[in-house]
Simulated scan of single mutants.
Amino acid sequence: MIKVGEIQELDVVKITPKGALLGLKGSDEGAFLPEKEIQEKIKIGDKIEVFVYKDDKLLATTKRPKIVAGEIGFLRVVETTRIGAFLDWGLDKDLFLPFREQFGKIERGEKYLVGVYVDKSNRPCATMQIKRLLSTNSPYKENDKVFGTIYSMNFEMGAFVAVDNKYDGLIPKNELYGVYRPGDKVELRVTKVREDGRLYLSLRSKSYKQMDRDANTIINKMKANGGELDLNDDSSPRRIQEELNMSKSAFKRAVGRLLKEGKIEFTRRGIKFKTMR
């Protein structure tokens, strides 16, 4: 069966002056490849890699759209109408974003994070409801390193991530350090795989590795401040986060290591490099 919205290899089953009909062996279904898309001489039986979409009929193109069915990415709006918007996805025919699939006000010329799905009429369409495109059946386990795209932010819960642009994950609020927004690419560590398959994620590596990095961050900050840092166990979590981009517990662990190694000492206001006597 020809898969609409996907890149696939099809056989040339018929050649006409206007193009070629492509299909699969044993199937009557075909997708038309216009003559302008044919870059070299072809013959019946040849295999061609194409992307298939639907207009009034199934069409094939050798061009690769910016995103295909099941993928997400930023696309620019080229037109808005009462029923939806049209997005530039790299093909001659723009991608339709139905009104019911939109969030907020959509403006021409702006880019929005969307995913591609195939609607009931077998046409590729865009949606801003990314979550429904994602699977919870990932191959990952605890402590695996993964890559993903933040697709939504929630002040109470954290950041929602499309891992590999395929699997649903969450960076809980207490693991979210720094400033992020939808569309940001992130490298993460799996901290838990829930029973439903959803991934819990962290921007931080395992504790012993992260402690080294946190300690280096503190050392570098002290060097920049003339060898001292006006932070200690009594400092507020918010101030530590603003100064060092780490949690208070991470700060305390790293300071404890530096104290044990004899690199720093406490002062009345914070910490400083230990004076060699």
Rank of each mutant, 00 (worst) to 15 (best):
F266N: 15
F99Y: 13
K57W: 11
Y208K: 14
R269S: 15
T149M: 07
V77L: 07
G148M: 01
G30D: 04
K223C: 08
G158Y: 01
A159W: 00
V163E: 04
Y117E: 06
T217G: 04
K260Y: 13
D184F: 03
R189Q: 14
K223L: 15
R64F: 01
I150P: 01
A69F: 00
E71Y: 11
S205V: 13
S135L: 10
L259V: 10
M157E: 08
S249N: 10
E40F: 06
L229A: 05
G115T: 03
G73A: 06
K209R: 14
F147E: 15
Q241W: 01
V77M: 03
K145M: 11
I130C: 08
D28M: 06
P139C: 09
E71T: 10
N122I: 10
K36I: 08
L22H: 03
R64N: 07
E107D: 08
L259A: 07
L231Y: 05
T61F: 06
S138P: 01
A85K: 03
I130V: 13
K223R: 15
G23E: 02
I44L: 11
L229M: 14
G148L: 02
K185Y: 11
M211N: 13
V78D: 03
P172E: 10
T62C: 10
E110C: 01
F155V: 08
G197V: 04
G270F: 03
M222I: 08
K223D: 10
E261F: 13
E243K: 07
E35T: 08
R204M: 12
G23F: 02
N220F: 09
V114R: 00
Q102E: 15
I7M: 07
M153E: 07
L33D: 00
V12C: 08
R213A: 15
A69S: 13
E37V: 10
K166C: 10
D56M: 11
T81Q: 11
K25C: 05
P124L: 06
K263F: 12
K54Y: 11
D234V: 12
I240W: 01
K120R: 15
V114S: 00
V163S: 03
I15T: 07
G178A: 11
I2D: 05
F99S: 12
S27A: 10
F51P: 01
R100Q: 12
E175I: 00
K260M: 09
A60H: 02
G84W: 01
V193I: 15
I42P: 05
T61I: 07
V116G: 02
C125K: 14
L170M: 10
